[in-house]
Simulated assay, not measured.
Amino acid sequence: MDKEMLEILKRLETKIDGIETKVNGIETKVNGIETKVDGIETKLNGVVEQTADLLEFRSETSKKINQIKDDVEVIKKDLCFVEEATAKNWRDIANLRAVK
């Protein structure tokens, strides 16, 4: 009976050792996963920061483009005025030459 108990205990000990080995393997894998998750979080934070920078750049660029559009419109109006004034001046010059 004692031999049977010892045999049973040895088998239990062997099984427990196997379970411990598996648990240690699982712990190692979990640690690896945690490391990878930390790396992913770091990369994700970088992406979030870059996205914020890009959104700010986009907003600033959009404002500058709108200002350039406004400036171009003003220049167009000024150029139109200059063309009209130049045409009038050429008419005046032609009239003055005709009077001579």
Rank of each mutant, 00 (worst) to 15 (best):
I75R: 07
N45L: 01
L55I: 00
M5D: 11
K63F: 12
G25W: 01
M5T: 12
I26F: 02
T28G: 08
L12T: 12
R11K: 14
K3T: 10
A85H: 07
E4L: 12
M5C: 05
G32S: 06
E13W: 08
E20Q: 05
K15I: 15
D71C: 07
L54C: 00
I8F: 08
L44I: 11
K88R: 06
I68K: 09
A85R: 13
I93P: 00
L6Q: 06
L79F: 12
I93S: 03
K100P: 02
K77T: 11
I8L: 13
K3I: 10
G39T: 04
I16E: 12
I8Y: 10
K43I: 01
C80D: 06
T42C: 03
L54M: 04
G46V: 02
E7I: 11
A52R: 14
A52E: 14
V30D: 02
N24T: 11
K22Q: 12
R97Q: 15
I33G: 02
K63A: 15
E41M: 03
L12P: 02
K22A: 12
E49I: 08
T51L: 13
V82Y: 07
N89E: 06
E41Q: 05
N45H: 05
K77V: 12
K22Y: 05
K64G: 02
N95V: 14
L54V: 00
L44F: 05
D2H: 05
K63W: 12
T21R: 14
E84G: 03
V48F: 01
G39A: 06
D38E: 15
E73A: 13
E60M: 13
E73F: 07
K69L: 11
R91K: 09
I33R: 06
T28K: 09
L9K: 01
T42P: 01
A85V: 08
M1P: 03
E13D: 15
R58M: 03
K36F: 04
Q50H: 07
K36M: 10
A87I: 03
E84I: 09
K43N: 02
N95A: 15
C80R: 08
F81R: 08
L55P: 00
G46I: 00
I68T: 13
L12G: 11
T28I: 05
K15H: 10
R58W: 01
A98Q: 15
I26S: 01
N95H: 13
F57W: 03
S59K: 10
A94H: 05
R11V: 05
K22T: 11
M5A: 12
G25Q: 04
E27V: 11
N66Q: 15
K36H: 09
